[in-house]
Amino acid sequence: MMRMQNLSKIYRTHMIETHALRGFDIHVREGEFVTVTGPSGSGKTTFLNIAGLLETFNGGEYVLDGVDVKGMSDDARSRLRNEKLGFIFQGFNLIPDLNLYDNVDVPLRYRGLSSADRDKRIKDALAQVGLGSRIKHYPAELSGGQQQRVAIARALAGSPKLLLADEPTGNLDTQMARSVMELLEEINASGTTILMVTHDPELAVRAQRNVHIIDGQVSDLVKKMPSLFDVKAAHAPAAATVA
């Protein structure tokens, strides 16, 4: 599904060079739920931005669903992002002036789908996250957990190959965080690949696999069995993690 090999990212100012990622390797297979952890400044966000085609990289290779993205133009990356990726952010990032329906509509507009197709996808996605009856509401009228559900619906509506989540529960209380996590696990169970950055070790171990990043490099890869396809298993405590 996505593979990075020997990837490097360097931020340059006129004074210093910062190696955010170096010799970075990762391979996420179709249908996996992978969490990415690491201390602050380790390169998690840089990795997610590059994985989400929001930033370019300096060296190495990145192949997303069979497409080599190296050297791609900004427009081509935008189209690929729209077609293959879904985003969930810590701050929800809904557009406050648009109601739920129109918020979920945003990525579909850029794909040039027909009005009927968009309508069906929007309603289905909002129904899937349990907000089908509130399509005319505005984000400010919802709780944090509900807003994050809208963001998930927005990401799902485009039927992404890969769902990128950046601390999706970071701004939520425990109960809401749990329900959002359960929703993500359901989505993964239905076949969508998920790559989630998190600080929370509890959440990290709930995934099939945890990737730990330190100083811009993958420190270790830990496989966790059984898979979260089994919803019951999703609630089981972590079997093993690498600290």
């Binding site: 427009d75 935008s78 189209r79 729209n82 990032n93 945003v106």
Partner: peptide, 9 residues
């Protein structure tokens, strides 16, 4: 947000 969701410049 729009750029992340696929809008080109």
């Amino acid at each position: 947000v729009r750029r992340a969701l696929g809008a080109t410049q």
